[in-house]
Amino acid sequence: MKNLHIANPVLGLLLVLASAGMASAQEPPTIFDPVHGEISPGTAAPSEAELMDVIRSGAPSRLMGLLEHGEMVECNACVPLLEAKLLESGNAGVRELAAWWLRRRPFAVGAIMNRMRLTLEGDADPTRRSRAAEALGELMDAHSLVPLRRAVEGDADGAADTSAMVRASAVLALGRLNHPAGNAVIAYAIEDTDVSVRRAALSVVLIVNFYREYDALVSALGDADPVVRRRAAQLVGEFRPCPPSRRC
């Protein structure tokens, strides 16, 4: 049996150089490795113990930075702790970076997605359902399309979520997912009964690819909410959709 400590010589070199740089903080480190190109100062990967320590008790920005630098650190024990952050952290940035790190764990992400789906579909707490929807978006896997769509529209397997907060989070997650099949759901949400959902839907129209559901935008020009009307007008101006009655 062989335990792998530093499987990647490139990253191992990174660690060595970064450690040398840290030993003398005021001496500018040499950061150009002739074989592997540039090595950026201050981005040395943390140890598993450092990661665990900061996940448990670190400041949010420290945790976010360390997760980014620990992108390729295999830390089994970090997985459940970060999964808990997805639902329990009050800091949106921490939840986002926790999901960012977890989606790089090809052998862990399936189980996490499954639990997020179950939380979205069955948890009694709308805040947890909302964060589960958000996490499904951040995990960036197309398999989340179905539960997110269900939360917004409902389908044969379940009704739409009764909480506007959850529906709004699901719409934002669909924007994050950026799946072509999500565009129709976003359009559907532009006509949601709750204004927060309608606003959320309009906020993601520009960040998904190939949005073509122009009718929903035109309809929103008559919305009761002035913010919705303004955003819809801006989007119509951006896309300049051609009315069906005209040749453009």
Binding site: L4, H5, A45, V73, E74, D141, H143
Partner: peptide
């Protein structure tokens, strides 16, 4: 990595060729 209908991961070729360079400090690898 198929788990409860949710995720299908990469083909064996991709994992066996790329995983050794992808992770380090992998104390959970045996």
């Amino acid at each position: 990595t198929y788990y409860e209908r949710e995720v299908v991961s990469y083909p064996a070729s991709y994992v066996s060729l790329l995983y050794p360079s992808a992770m380090f400090e992998a104390s959970d690898v045996m």
